[in-house]
């Protein structure tokens, strides 16, 4: 399978008044064409920063300090602003958390879709509105001709997210980055929105990066899962493998903390400790080391990312399920 996106050694630092925050450190992963990869982690793990860095949307304080993000032959991190503007929305599209605030509140949704259709979708001034209606119909909005004139506040959260998906799909992108696309939506709506994204991906062969804090959602929707912790990708594996045989101690903890459809409260375990301070140079090599019960001397020295078995990468010296 060819890679739709290959991220290699991506590091991002934020320059703040309180010092330099090393938000991402040598993040690497790939997404195959037509594949769904989930980036899973708790708040502060760097999931969204990864997406923003790939899209070239980091705020001014954030700086990519190393790495490449190859979309086909193009390195998104080295692309000029002008070429990035052509790629964004056309070859890579993004769906944001909280659709109601991500849409422009003072313009009808049809106009917002038509804008993207004209910019990236090859529509002309004359047929943009018809294309917008078509796009709304494709994402399952009833009575699309009337809905094009609706403002975001007139639509429910689920409807707004469908509009976002219609905008993202306007130019049939190669890669869709969905940043917590269903947070704040009801579970019933979440299921429908996720179905829609999967359906769109299946139709166009588009790759999807699903960013979520919900391991269960990732388990249902992604073929592979990358677990992030404090700016590191600590483990990447096929979903079933990761859930059945996690090798990184943090992944195992995260699974043990997630409520399941069976099981009791007593069986759930929290993840002890907190994220380390990512400012300055004194960050331990393995950022999970301070919370880890398998810590040894070498954990503070190097990170040790490696492929433990085919298709199963971890960044750990003393993984689970391997004799120490």
């Amino acid at each position: 399978m060819s890679d739709a996106l290959s991220v290699q050694d991506l590091s991002v630092a934020f320059h703040t008044r309180a010092g330099v925050v090393h938000a991402l450190d040598r993040v690497s992963f790939t997404v195959g064409a037509g594949e769904t990869l989930a980036l899973v982690g708790e708040s502060g793990s760097g999931k969204s920063v990864t997406a923003y860095a790939i899209m070239g949307l980091l705020e001014a304080a954030g700086q990519v300090t190393s790495g490449r993000a190859l979309l086909g032959e193009t390195d998104l991190l080295a692309a000029s602003p002008a070429s990035l503007a052509r790629i964004r929305g056309k070859r890579v599209a993004m769906i944001f958390q909280n659709p109601r605030t991500a849409l422009n509140p003072i313009r009808p949704v049809g106009t917002q879709i038509a804008d993207v259709m004209r910019r990236h979708g090859g529509a002309t001034w004359f047929n943009a509105r018809a294309r917008a209606i078509e796009a709304l119909r494709a994402v399952g909005i009833p009575d699309p001709a009337r809905r094009t004139r609706a403002y975001p506040f007139e639509l429910s959260g689920g409807m707004c997210q469908r509009v976002m998906i219609a905008i993202a799909m306007a130019a049939r992108p190669d890669l869709l980055i969905a940043d917590e696309p269903t947070t704040g939506l009801d579970v019933t709506t979440q299921a429908v929105v996720m179905d829609l994204i999967a359906e769109m991906a299946a139709q166009t062969g588009m790759a999807t990066i699903l960013i979520t804090h919900d391991l269960a959602l990732a388990a249902e929707r992604a073929r592979r899962i990358a677990v992030m912790h404090a700016g590191h990708v600590v483990e990447v594996a096929e979903t079933a493998t990761l859930l059945a045989r996690p090798m990184h101690p943090y992944s195992a903890r995260l699974i043990a903390a997630t409520p399941t459809a069976a099981g009791t409260l007593e069986e759930l375990q929290s993840v002890p400790g907190a994220l380390p301070d990512l400012r300055g140079a004194a960050i331990p090599a393995c950022r999970y080391a301070a919370r880890c019960d398998r810590r040894q001397a070498d954990c503070g020295e190097t990170l040790h990312p490696h492929e433990a078995e085919p298709g199963h990468s971890i960044a750990c010296h003393h993984p689970l399920g391997v004799a120490a």
Binding site: V187, L215, A219, T258, T260, A261
Partner: peptide, 16 residues
């Protein structure tokens, strides 16, 4: 509709 760690139910009815 609740996502499950065990994976999706194959016959899950959707509420549209």
């Amino acid at each position: 509709a609740v996502p499950r760690l065990e994976g999706a139910r194959p016959e899950a009815p959707r509420l549209v």
